[in-house]
Amino acid sequence: MTERLAGNVPKALSAPVSQGYSIDARKLTTRLLNASIKSGVSKGRYITILNPDARHNLAVGIVKRCSLSFAGSVGYYCCAFCDGISATIEGNSGWGLGDNLMSGSIVIREDAGASVGASMRGGQILVWGNAGARAGISMKGGTLVIAGNSGFLTGFMMQRGRIIVMGGVGDAAGDSMYEGIVYVGGEIGSLGVDAKTESATRSEEVELRAFLKALKFRDDILPRRFRKIVSAKRLYQYDSLEPLERERLVI
């Protein structure tokens, strides 16, 4: 999937390197690296981080508008607790990319590890490759777009916002969702507890396509149609009935 899409990555979303400067991550401890990113950000510069070497906790807690570009893979919790950033990752990410994102955008050119966009509250994360297990776990807002496939427990305990998966999703999709929508272009492995599928309405389809086009997805790679996974809301009320008693109830 990524190979096919690689040429199509929107230019506008990547940091224009020429106007900024670069930091070589290999020469710095994570603490110093994050401090230098922050000090560059406060001067309004575009920053390229060279040799991130899949290290953890890079660019966490940045609450200013800024542009960052990682020239390689990043580890766990990259761009966690950020507000207003625009980040591009040229490789893969580990677990929890964009954890608790408030606003801004994160673009990852290859695969995201498990729990991408965990608890995100706003902004947008775009994964050009595949996502691991529990994508969008406990999401509370914003949009998570996955151009490839998404793994096990996609949208687990999601509370608001939307996940758009252009490929397929794995087993237990939408398990224990409260609110929010998971749009799926490909196959659904299986539905999770209290999740149900609906077909997207015409106006939703139009809106979705317009949104994806704005992200520079070509028409021919968009799925023919989207199905959506939402909460069946049967878990909203608990009762103390035995399974047999519940079967006899007419709802």
């Binding site: 070497d53 290290r55 953890h56 893979s73 580890g75 490789g91 893969n92 580990g94 290859e110 695969d111």
Partner: peptide, 14 residues
């Protein structure tokens, strides 16, 4: 991945 990047070049797909 941090362990594998010590021995594999950047262009090997994960």
């Amino acid at each position: 991945e941090v362990a594998l990047r010590r021995i594999f070049p950047d262009d090997v797909r994960r």
